[in-house]
Amino acid sequence: MSTPVWPEFVPERGRALGSDALSGPIIDEAELTAGVRVEAGQTYGFLTDTTLCIGCKACEVACKEWNALPAEEPFVMTGNSYDNTSQLSATTWRHVAFVEKLVQAGAHERASATHGSAFQSGWLMMSDVCKHCTHAGCLEACPTGALFRTEFDTVVVQADICNGCGYCVPACPFGVVALDSNDGKAHKCTLCYDRLKGGFEPACAKACPTNSIQFGPLPDLHARANERVASLRQRHGVADAYLYGVQGADGGQGTTGGIGDLQAFFVLTDQPEVYNLPSAPSLPSRRVRPGLLAGLATMAGVAIAAAVVFAAGSERP
């Protein structure tokens, strides 16, 4: 006797039913989950609103699941609040940071991170990710073309081109991309390139239960973020709320030095460094031309000195 199967999954039945939803993926699923139709040629990104993050790490898990990323070995209990992930790596493309700012509740009570207003305590959580910079240091540094800009304006490593030279690693101004010692290639968040191609919302954004991570076209996200910051400041009394990674907004932190808009940007409530982000990074490739010119000028000087020394004197043949 053959194994019984549910009738819905019999291929012939699926075809017979025509557009039966169970016969294949839902077309343009992102429209249902994020209200966004994913189309090539548009600029997509993440808005990560840290005031909504509850530190559940669903984004970390969803990312690992979808991208088949292994756990970090060995597992270490860091003692740094609830953060045992510590950093983004070749196999960790979302990382939830936990900051405990001690808050004094009253004169006789011990300072604690969980005091503070009902809206937000001194316990800050932030899901970090590759920023998918408008001008990406890693991409500009890559000598093989393994790092490229996709039709969604995201920055992705092609593992079948990468030869593991490792130059993108120190180039990244945010310490995101990393080499994997197992396969000898560089890896980082792809903004779920494969999912976008299939019309799906990226895994982390879809899994986020509080909408702290929002996916969409960059102009929409910018508008939404500006509204959110205004509302945080005016209605929720969070005067410190600001945008990190948006040019022209709140000092444009993170977008400095030629980097431009970060396509994955953040609503923060404390200085960037508190979340392990630089306040004014710069694009490494800006140093190429002045460096080369200085080097060539030096060697021109050496050549002139050598010419004088070799040509001068009385020992001509």
């Binding site: 860091t78 740094n80 953060d83 510590s86 950093q87 940071a97 900051v99 490792g166 130059y167 690693v169 120190p170 990244c172 101004p173 945010f174 310490g175 995101v176 991309v177 990393a178 200085q271 460094e273 508190v274 979340y275 392990n276 982000l277 630089p278």
Partner: peptide, 12 residues
């Protein structure tokens, strides 16, 4: 101020 003194950049 740093994040638990953890690196903000990756070394070469």
């Amino acid at each position: 101020s740093t994040y638990y003194g953890l690196p903000a950049l990756k070394p070469s």
